[in-house]
Design a protein around this nucleic acid. Structure first.
Lengths: 361, 361
DNA sequence: CGACCGAGGTTTTACGTATAACGTCTCCAG
DNA sequence: CTGGAGACGTTATACGTAAAACCTCGGTCG
C-alpha cells in the first residue's frame, strides 16, 4: 500500500533531507495535518481521526502507526486556531483577578490552572485595570477565544464588561445576592471572623481596633459585619474601625495615627488581611509597645508573610488554591450541563504568636 | 438616512424586539461578521474592512457608520479563533515561569502583560511543572496558538520542550553562553552582589555565611561567583556556602544548623533571596542573637517581604516589572524583524536595618 | 445469486475571518 | 462618444481542522 508507488516519495522542499528530529528553522512553515497525511500515505481525514483518538474500529492498527510515526517525524503540532474554529469551543477559561502580586490570587490561579490542566483546559489571566494599565476590555486583552469566565468579586470594574456577554460566569467570593453568575464559590469568611473574635474574647480582649481594607468589596464587608455581630452580645466590648490601603506602609501609618489618638487604647487589632497585620505590628512597635504582650494583632488569609514576620501571625487560613480549583470545576460543570458543587469552603483559625491574653487594666 | 425605507428594519430572530444592549441569552449563537453585514445591508467583506480600520478611501463614511452601528447593536465581537487562523498569527505570547506565588515572577508577568496590552498582545502563562502538576507539554497546557515564548531560565524543565519548536524564544536571566535564544534579558546580578559585598566589607565584616538557593539556576550561580570574586582579594575574608530550599522555614532550619556548628561564627549572612533572609533572621533570633547587632543579614530581590519584616532587609532591588516589560518588547522586536534592545538591566543596593557594623571580636 | 454488512478508508464540507481580485457607476477629458 | 480613472463595494478564496457522508471490496447469509 504505502510502498512501490513512485508517488510515495515525501515531497521535501529542496536541498537535502531536512533533519527529522523537529529542528525546524524559521521560514519553513509549520507542518499541517495534510503534510502528515502525505508523508504517511493516507488522507488528511485519517490523520485527524488517528491523532484525535477516534479511530478505533475505523482505521487499522498498522495505518494508525504510520500516521503517528509521520506526525512525530515532522514534529507536527495541531494548529489550535484552526481546531478552535472548527469545534466552536476553545477549552480556555478567563480568570479575572485584581492583581497577581497579591499572593492570595496567585494561589487562586495555581489552583485553577491545576484543575484546568487535568481536564485539558487552559487558563488565561486578566489582571483587572487597577493592576495593569490601558486595557479596558477584558476580551480584547485576553486575546484568546474563551469558553467561560471565572472572576473575583474584587475585580468589580471588569465585571460589567463581562456581564454583557453570554459566556458562563463563575464568581469567586461574591455577594450571593447579586445576579448573573452561573455558579459561585465562596469562603466561609463570616465563620472565620467569628472564630477569630471568639479566640480574642476568650483571651480577655474587649477593646478592639478593626483595621479594614480601604478598597470596598464583599469579602471585606462580610468581615466587618461578622465582627460586629460577634461582639454585639458582649456587654463591654467596643470596636473602632479604621480603613487602610492594602500595603504594609499604609497600614502602619493608619495604625500609628489611630493609636496616638486620645482615649483608651485597644488591646487587640483585628486586621482584614495579613499584609495589614504586618503593618500593624510595625506601628505597635514604633510606639514602644510589644506584640503580643501589650497589644495582640491578628491577620487574615494566612499568606507566606504570616510566618515570615515575628511574631508569627495568628490568622485565619483561607484555602486559596481550593477556591481556584473549585472555581474551575464549577465552570467545567456548567459547561457540561452538570450542577456545580454547592456550599462554602471552610476556613480555619490558626493561632500563632501574635495573640496573647489581654493585659489587665 | 436610516429611516424611511421599509428594508431598514433590522431582521430580528422572532418574538418581539430583542434587547439591543447585548444581553444575549445562552443558546443564541454569537453573531458573526456576516450577521452584522446582513443587518447593515452590506457584504461581509465590507464589515471586515470597516471594523479592521482598513476602509479609508474604499468605503464611504456613511456605510462605515451603518456597519459600526449594526455591530454595536448585535453586540458583535470577532471570533478570535477564525481571525488567528486567517492571519496565521495570534498576537499571543507564552510566558514560562517557575511559579507565580513567587512575587518576583508575578511582577515579571505584570510587566510583560502591561507592554503586551499596549501592543494589542496577549500573554498566557505556563507555570512550569515544579509548580503545577501533570502537564508535561507547555504547548498542550497553554492552549492558545502562540507567536512566541518568553521563558525564565529557572523553568529549565519546560525549556527543552520549547527548543524543539521554531517559535522565537526570549530568555530571561539566563546564561549568555547557552544558545537558542532570539533575545535575552538579563539583570546585572553580579554587580548587585558586588555592591552588597562592598557594603558589608565596608562595615567591617570578614566572616560570611552565604545562604544559597538549593535549586540550581544561572541567576544563583552568578550570585555565588560574584560573591567569591569580590572576596578573593580581601586577605582575611572567609565565606561558607549553605544551600537551602526557597521558603522561610527551610531557610531557618538551614541557618540554625549552620550557626550551631563549631568554629568561628559568621558576622554576616548573605542570602540569595529575601525569603531566605527572612528565614535567616528568624534563625539568628532563635539562637538568642540579634539582627543586626550580632549578625547582619542581607537579602536579594527587594520583595514586599523585605519591608514587612523587622528589621527591614538590606537587599538588592531587582526591577522585576522591567524584566517582564523588556522581555515582551524584545519578543515584539524579534517578531517584527527589528533588533532587540541590548544590555543588562541595572540593579540597586538598598540599605535598610538588617545590616550594621560587624561586632569587634 | 443478490442483498447486506463491516472494515477501512476517502471526499467533502463547514467553521468565521481577512484580503486579493474583480465589478460597476459616475464623471470628465480628448 | 470613448476611454480612463477614481469611488465604492462585492465575490471568491484560503487558512487547518473535525467529522458527516460517502465509497469500495471481500465475505456471509437467506
Amino acid at each position: 500500500m504505502a510502498d512501490g508507488s513512485p508517488k510515495d516519495q515525501p515531497v521535501v522542499s529542496g536541498q537535502g533531507a531536512s533533519p527529522p528530529p523537529a529542528g525546524n528553522r524559521a521560514g519553513t512553515p509549520r507542518p499541517t495535518s495534510r503534510d502528515v497525511a502525505r508523508a504517511a500515505g493516507v488522507s488528511q481525514a485519517t490523520v485527524s481521526l488517528v491523532l484525535g483518538e477516534k479511530w478505533h474500529g475505523r482505521v487499522s492498527e498498522r495505518t494508525a502507526g504510520l500516521v503517528r510515526d509521520a506526525a512525530r517525524q515532522l514534529g507536527y503540532r495541531p494548529n489550535l486556531a484552526a481546531r478552535n474554529l472548527r469545534l466552536g469551543r476553545t477549552r480556555t477559561a478567563l480568570l479575572v483577578v485584581p492583581a497577581l502580586t497579591n499572593e492570595f490570587f496567585a494561589r487562586v490561579y495555581t489552583g485553577a490552572a491545576t484543575v484546568a490542566a487535568e481536564h485539558d483546559f487552559g487558563v488565561v489571566l486578566y489582571p483587572s485595570p487597577e493592576g495593569v494599565g490601558p486595557a479596558k476590555d477584558p476580551f480584547a486583552s485576553a486575546r484568546a477565544a474563551l469558553d467561560g469566565v471565572i472572576a473575583s468579586s474584587m475585580a468589580a470594574q471588569a465585571l460589567t464588561a463581562i456581564r454583557g456577554t453570554d459566556l458562563p460566569l463563575v464568581m469567586l467570593d461574591s455577594d450571593p445576592a447579586d445576579p448573573g453568575a452561573a455558579a459561585r464559590v465562596n469562603l466561609d469568611i463570616a465563620d472565620g471572623m467569628r472564630q477569630m473574635s471568639a479566640h480574642l474574647l476568650a483571651l480577655g480582649h474587649r477593646r478592639f481596633l478593626h483595621l479594614a481594607s480601604a478598597v470596598s468589596s464583599w469579602t471585606f464587608d462580610v468581615r466587618a459585619r461578622a465582627l460586629a455581630a460577634s461582639l454585639r452580645d458582649v456587654p463591654d466590648a467596643v470596636v473602632r474601625t479604621v480603613p487602610a490601603p492594602l500595603d504594609v506602609a499604609g497600614a502602619r501609618e493608619a495604625v500609628e495615627r489611630a493609636l496616638t489618638r486620645p482615649g483608651p487604647r485597644p488591646t487587640a487589632i483585628v486586621c482584614d488581611d495579613d499584609i495589614l497585620a504586618a503593618g500593624a505590628c510595625k506601628a505597635v512597635r514604633r510606639l514602644g509597645l510589644r506584640v503580643p504582650e501589650d497589644i495582640s494583632v491578628t491577620g487574615f488569609d494566612d499568606l507566606a508573610l504570616a510566618t515570615a514576620v515575628e511574631p508569627e501571625l495568628t490568622t485565619v487560613s483561607l484555602p486559596a488554591e481550593r477556591v481556584g480549583a473549585r472555581g474551575m470545576s464549577a465552570l467545567l460543570a456548567v459547561l457540561e450541563g452538570r450542577p456545580p458543587e454547592e456550599g462554602d469552603l471552610p476556613v480555619e483559625l490558626v493561632v500563632r504568636g501574635s495573640s496573647a491574653p489581654a493585659r489587665a487594666g
